[in-house]
Design a protein around this nucleic acid. Structure first.
Lengths: 188, 188
DNA sequence: TTTCTAAAAGCAAATTATTTGCGTTAGTGA
DNA sequence: TCACTAACGCAAATAATTTGCTTTTAGAAA
């Protein structure tokens, strides 16, 4: 049950989608996530449950859909003057956001949904890659050396995410900085 | 709804648990995961659904419980004569197992369950850490240099897991080897 | 061993969620 | 404007979940 994104985008479907997403966000902020049900969302959104079932399939898909949207960055990484500090600040903010209660919940929602397609998780990965890419391009424009984007994902993003998902202790600020440090140590 | 592991371990509870786990494994091997329901599992296991609901709470918790057990390594990493090859072979096997269809499904089950407690995902992380620890101790006994276990998690385990979870492309054998390579490059 | 106790299982009724068929509404393209 | 059809609403049917109560059974005490 793939969510179509470009069928009749300007009409009722779009309004229903917006209304349902809004309802989900509001309910999640008010109550525990396993008390949120589709009939509840439907009431809050002013639609019938069957509409939601037909469009999203089940609660996990819907939560994932909402989470992906919320995980999309709303601004490019701040330009701090140097690639290293750009990356430091971006990584710290990324770690903070992802390690927060809502952040973790959204990541789990996105990962849980992957029943048939990996597209949801892939999108999030794509957002991250884009952000790092922006930093890399700025570095290039300034004439600074900057590691490969994939290396940044391996050495900075992946450890942060691994510890958020699997470990009890989210990475500290110092830890994040040391990961970035390691990134710049070997090269120049 | 925590699963207790040490209450009346030798009696009926244990038989029910074993029977339910077995039913889950068999059903998952026979059919698509989102066709598996608790009433189905109950029938297959020869118990009533309410027993499962009361013990595990919901399907996700049960699937996570089963997945954690299946993710527990059944043997220590193979001793290949040197720490580097130990780590190489272990990492390749780890990547293969986790990137496989069932592997990915189990990881997702474990991560999805984390409603109240992070214990499930933490356990998996713990298994991995133990395996690496074994390799590290063997290296120490042999007098070989070996990086810190946490560094191995950051630089080898985390990138593998990140790409399995978020990327479409699971890491290739060459990629895994290059991660291990990077691990040994800077030091000793 | 026998008896007592309470945790866990079974059963069935009540509730709640999900699916489905069909009629209606409202964007879209001619 | 009109015809077409995807998407919605409604309501009935089905399936899953919860819950109160009874029965079973492992483990402890006599």
């Amino acid at each position: 049950m793939n969510i179509r994104e470009n069928i009749r985008p300007g009409g009722r479907s779009a309004r229903v989608q917006a209304s349902v997403h809004k309802a989900v966000r509001e309910l999640l902020s008010k109550m525990d996530r396993n008390e949120v049900t589709i009939p509840l969302i439907a009431t809050e959104a002013g639609v019938t449950p069957s509409t939601i079932y037909r469009r999203w399939g089940d609660l996990q898909e819907l939560l994932a859909d909402v989470a992906v949207e919320r995980l999309r960055p709303d601004a490019p990484p701040k330009d701090t003057g140097s690639a290293r500090t750009d990356l430091e600040q971006w990584a710290e903010q990324y770690a903070d956001e992802m390690a927060s209660g809502p952040g973790r919940a959204m990541i789990r929602d996105v990962l849980s949904s992957v029943g048939a397609d990996t597209r949801n998780a892939g999108k999030c990965c794509g957002y991250t890659r884009e952000q790092v890419q922006v930093i890399a391009e700025r570095a290039h424009d300034r004439g600074e050396a900057f590691p490969d984007v994939e290396a940044v994902i391996d050495e900075v993003v992946a450890p942060i995410m691994y510890r958020i998902l699997f470990d009890d202790a989210p990475p500290t600020s110092a830890k994040v900085l040391s990961l970035v440090e390691g990134m710049f140590a070997g090269r120049s």
